[in-house]
Design a binder for these strands. Structure first.
Lengths: 152, 152
DNA sequence: TATTGTTATACTCTATAACTATA
DNA sequence: TATAGTTATAGAGTATAACAATA
């Protein structure tokens, strides 16, 4: 994607579209994903696989179905993401004792180590994406987005 | 995508991932795009084609290259979007007198009419997506996102 | 009967490279 | 030599339906 000229920005920013939250979110997210994927590339992770790894390495013991719901992804996509992370030794599918249909996805110790590095990488990316905002504003944005994201 | 149980929300919301702005933005946007596409479906538009139409129907006379940059899309994707809208009679490619390589994309009167209806549809969708926020909070979110989106 | 994980499949989205016409 | 638009194509992302095992 080519760099944007300031003339272009000025001209198109004054359009109605440029004030729509949906549009602004699309743009902000394109930027954020680019930065995140750049920082995660050396760990052979992307935003998606990072999210799965992070939840697997939390103490929440999510099932694949839960991962799909929480990450707004289709269940069939989770299969491929977990397959990849499992093949690389970062997560395992554990049998759920209370429901034998269900797999619980858990991080291995290698997964935990990778996850720690990934969190650092994502922090770097987030700082790049949000460099226009100070700490208080970032908290404000986080709070507003959380309410939108979880109170649809 | 299945509905999310409150138990799941509670359990996974307490993870570190759930506090990352990148993740929250992905979730909020999945929601917003779903609502927008639902409302635009009867006009045979999607979030993407709506954005192109809206810019074409503004007074800014964007080139295809400018549309690509402003919408964070690849130039080759704009071709297909403009092709579709042009075939349906909503926009035309006008020759740019100052640079004959360049097309200026302009809305027709049918395009203007459709755009007006689309703006209403998108407003409905935005109200659904942002129902958790009051007017002042929406302005705040808009402002914060704009700064992130345009000051990467 | 309904649900979890899985597979297969198709459809959309996105990125890349090569081409043409202009600059 | 570089840029705007186009085309072709491949790869990534996403959705749907069907199946086996289990509830």
């Amino acid at each position: 994607m080519a760099a944007e000229t300031s003339a272009l920005r000025h001209r198109l920013r004054s359009t109605d579209l440029a004030t729509e939250i949906e549009f602004l979110m699309a743009r902000a997210r394109a930027l954020g994903t680019t930065h995140a994927n750049e920082q995660l590339a050396s760990l052979k992770l992307k935003a998606r696989s990072y999210a799965v790894l992070a939840l697997a390495c939390s103490q929440s013991r999510p099932s694949q179905r839960e991962l799909a719901e929480f990450l707004s992804l289709d269940a069939s996509q989770i299969v491929a993401l977990v397959d990849d992370l499992e093949r690389r030794g970062y997560v395992v599918r554990e049998a759920d004792v209370s429901d034998r249909r269900s797999n619980v996805i858990v991080g291995t110790s290698e997964g935990m180590a990778l996850c720690q590095r990934a969190v650092s990488a994502v922090t770097v990316a987030e700082n790049k994406s949000l460099k226009a905002l100070d700490e208080a504003e970032r908290d404000q944005l986080r709070d507003l987005l959380a309410r939108v994201a979880f109170e649809g």
